[in-house]
Amino acid sequence: MTKDANHGPLWVIGIKSLVFTVVTVLATGILAMTIRNSSSGEAVEYTAVFADATSVNRGDDVRVAGVKVGTVLDVAVTEGRLARVRFTIRKGVPVERGAVIQINFRNLVGQRYLAIKQPGSDAAGTTAGDPVPASAATMVEPGHTFGLEETRPALSLTVLFNGFRPLMRLLDSDDVNALSEQILAVFQGEAATVEGLLESTAGLTTTLAEKDEVIGQLITSLSSVMQTVNSRSGQLDTTVRTMQQLVSGLAADRAAIGGSIEGLGELTDRVAGLLGDTRPSVRRSIEHLGTLSETLDQHSTDVERFLNLLPTKLDRIGRTASYGSWLNFYLCSMDGRIPLPEGYMGDVGVKPVAGRCR
């Protein structure tokens, strides 16, 4: 029999090689199954519709009470706005009617998994007390589709952080920076520990406790404002209704209002044109009025004497004319011109027709 000088007979070497190969293949298979995150055994397929299935990927776990019982097959968009998730559950695992499919965080880096919460289970998915065996009538049929009322999306951290934003404004900037650094360190996989994160959270809680008086005053003031608004609710309703009626009336009369605005603009243009046409005549009249005023001022003595004697003269002339036909007064003619908007100077007057006026 052939024999190796260093390792003994060849059949021994062959057995060792065969054992090594089998162990290596088994270890590789176990590692591949672990990486694929697949479940062994016969499985039943189900479908769930979510309003938001962000970060849910093929191969993610499906768990009941924290135990993996299935795998996510695929995720697709349905109805243009919803997410349809197909997954499997190991055959023999009961899923009762009324069960809720919840998307939970698997770890701090954002991976998700589907948690099946049976009716009567707590937030963690475990059933309080001794479990009651489910009958076939209360079981979900294979291939069942869980609608939106039977699914819950994952918690939105953006909404959570936005909700705490008003409180964050009251915190000390150093505490907020320290907490942010710890959170970023955890998500980046650096050397920061959970203990440091808890210490920062404790500091944050302490700061909030120190600001409780400010928060209380804010809530009290807000309560007073709401009470005042509530006490004036009738007036507020009346104001809103009146405003609504005003806006509705303006909307109904928008054509008339628009026509009025157009007419007002046209009237403004006409008035501007009229003033432009009459401005030279008015300017000349004012200049002549100034000349007349200067002349009257220069002869103020004569004007004053005339005005003083005018009543006496009119009285004597009236008496003379009343005793006989010694004085006759006739209006033989009158002439004048009136400026028209079109610029034509119209003639106005009375022409002499009687023989005494010729």
Rank of each mutant, 00 (worst) to 15 (best):
S233G: 04
L264P: 09
T193Y: 03
L274E: 07
K117I: 07
Q118I: 10
N107Q: 02
R63F: 03
G41D: 04
V72H: 01
V240L: 02
R165N: 08
G92S: 01
L204G: 06
T88N: 06
G125H: 02
L292M: 11
F105D: 07
D269N: 03
P119F: 08
G318W: 11
A48N: 05
G189F: 13
S40M: 12
G276V: 13
L310A: 14
A5L: 13
T301Y: 05
A252S: 14
L114H: 00
V100W: 05
G163W: 09
A136C: 01
S55E: 03
L108R: 02
L157Y: 10
V271W: 07
A137F: 04
A115F: 08
T158P: 12
N107F: 00
R319I: 01
I103A: 00
L184Q: 13
N328R: 13
S135E: 03
L208N: 02
T138S: 06
S121D: 01
A43F: 06
G263N: 10
R152G: 01
R241S: 09
R63S: 02
G276H: 07
G290A: 08
L267A: 15
D269T: 15
L198F: 14
Q188G: 10
H7W: 15
S322Q: 13
L160W: 01
T151K: 00
P352E: 12
Q118R: 05
L340K: 05
R86L: 00
I116N: 00
H144W: 05
I286R: 15
M345G: 00
R305P: 05
G259I: 09
K16D: 12
I35E: 06
F161Y: 12
V225L: 14
R81D: 11
I89E: 03
T201D: 03
V25N: 10
W11I: 10
G234Y: 12
A83H: 06
V271R: 11
I183A: 03
D315F: 13
L198D: 13
